[in-house]
Measured scan of single mutants.
Amino acid sequence: MGMPNRKYADGEVVMGRWPGSVLYYEVQVTSYDDASHLYTVKYKDGTELALKESDIRLQS
């Protein structure tokens, strides 16, 4: 078993793309699913969504 190939840690605050949009919002990573390679993130309004790594970026 190798290390999970994840870029962002639980609790890390990053920018997540809103689905169907080009806009990124501040989100907190809450979990990562090794099987689906999706991150569960929480937006400031409390919305929780699963995002692909390509829809997440570090805060500038």
Rank of each mutant, 00 (worst) to 15 (best):
A9C: 07
D55T: 02
Y8P: 03
R6W: 03
Y32E: 00
Y8N: 00
Y8A: 02
S54F: 07
Y24S: 03
Y43P: 02
G2D: 14
T47L: 08
Y24V: 03
L58R: 15
I56Y: 00
S21Q: 10
E48R: 07
K44L: 10
V41I: 03
K44N: 08
H37G: 15
E53I: 04
V29Y: 00
Y43D: 08
Q28L: 14
K7W: 04
T40R: 08
V41P: 01
M3G: 14
Q59L: 15
E48S: 11
L49V: 11
R57G: 07
W18L: 09
P19N: 05
Y25Q: 10
M3V: 15
H37A: 14
G2A: 10
W18Y: 09
A9I: 06
D10F: 04
P4G: 12
V29T: 01
R6T: 03
V14W: 01
L23D: 12
G2H: 11
A35D: 12
V22I: 13
G11S: 04
V14D: 01
V41N: 00
R17Q: 06
K7D: 03
G16C: 12
I56Q: 01
K42M: 13
P19D: 04
D10R: 03
G20N: 10
R17D: 01
Y25N: 05
M1T: 15
E12K: 04
Y43G: 08
Q59V: 15
S31H: 12
R6P: 05
D55E: 11
V13T: 11
G2C: 07
I56L: 12
D45G: 05
D34T: 11
D55Q: 07
Q28R: 11
D34I: 12
E48W: 07
E12H: 04
S54P: 05
S60P: 13
E26W: 09
A50H: 15
V22S: 14
S54A: 11
A50S: 14
K42L: 12
V13M: 14
G20S: 06
V14H: 02
G20R: 03
S21M: 06
V22E: 14
D34R: 06
V22P: 12
Y32I: 00
S54G: 11
E53R: 02
E12R: 04
G2L: 10
Y25W: 07
Y8C: 02
V14I: 04
Y32P: 00
V29S: 00
T47F: 08
S21H: 07
V27P: 00
G20W: 05
Y32A: 00
D45S: 05
K52H: 12
E53N: 04
R6K: 05
E53G: 05
L58G: 14
K42G: 03
S36P: 01
G46W: 03
H37Q: 15
P4R: 02
T40Q: 08
V27L: 07
V27C: 15
T30Y: 07
